[in-house]
Simulated assay, not measured.
Amino acid sequence: MMKKKFNNKSIYILVIAPVIMAFLALNLSGFVYKSGTAITGIIILLLLYFRNLSKAKDIISLLFAFVFSIVGDWFLSNMRGDVTMFVYGIAFYFLAHLGYLFYALMNGQIKWKFTFVLLVAFLVFFIAVLYPSIDDKVLLMTTLIYLVISCLSLGAAVGIRTNSLTKWTYVFGIFLILFSDTIISLKEFVKYTELNFLILPTYYLAHIFIIFSLISRRLIND
Rank of each mutant, 00 (worst) to 15 (best):
F66Y: 02
F66A: 04
F66N: 00
F66S: 00
V67T: 05
V67E: 09
F68M: 07
F68C: 08
F68V: 02
S69Y: 03
S69D: 06
I70L: 03
I70V: 09
V71G: 03
V71N: 04
V71A: 02
G72L: 07
G72Y: 04
G72K: 02
G72S: 05
D73A: 05
F75S: 03
F75C: 11
F75Q: 00
S77Q: 10
S77L: 09
N78A: 11
N78M: 08
M79A: 08
M79P: 13
R80F: 09
R80W: 03
R80V: 06
R80S: 09
R80Y: 09
R80L: 06
D82Q: 14
D82R: 15
D82K: 15
D82N: 15
D82P: 07
T84F: 11
T84Y: 04
M85T: 08
M85S: 12
F86H: 11
V87E: 09
G89P: 10
G89D: 01
I90Y: 01
A91K: 10
A91T: 08
A91P: 11
A91C: 12
A91L: 11
F92P: 00
Y93R: 05
F94T: 00
L95Q: 09
L95E: 04
L95W: 01
A96E: 00
A96P: 00
A96I: 03
H97C: 08
H97M: 10
H97P: 09
L98H: 08
L98R: 02
G99W: 13
Y100P: 02
F102I: 11
Y103W: 04
A104D: 06
A104L: 07
A104E: 07
L105A: 02
L105I: 00
L105V: 02
M106V: 05
N107I: 07
N107R: 11
N107L: 06
N107Q: 07
G108M: 07
G108Q: 03
G108S: 05
G108C: 05
G108Y: 06
G108T: 00
Q109K: 13
I110D: 01
K111D: 14
K111L: 05
K111M: 03
W112D: 04
W112Q: 09
K113R: 08
K113I: 07
F114D: 05
T115E: 15
T115A: 14
F116V: 10
F116M: 14
V117A: 15
L118W: 06
L118D: 05
L118F: 13
L118C: 07
L119D: 12
L119I: 15
A121V: 10
A121P: 00
F122D: 03
F122K: 06
F122N: 11
F122Q: 12
L123Q: 12
L123M: 15
L123H: 09
V124F: 15
V124Q: 12
V124R: 13
V124N: 12
F125W: 12
F125T: 04
F125Y: 14
F126N: 04
F126S: 02
I127C: 13
I127G: 10
A128P: 01
A128Q: 13
V129T: 12
L130P: 14
Y131H: 14
Y131S: 13
P132S: 04
P132W: 08
P132R: 11
P132E: 01
P132L: 05
S133K: 14
S133M: 12
S133V: 06
S133I: 03
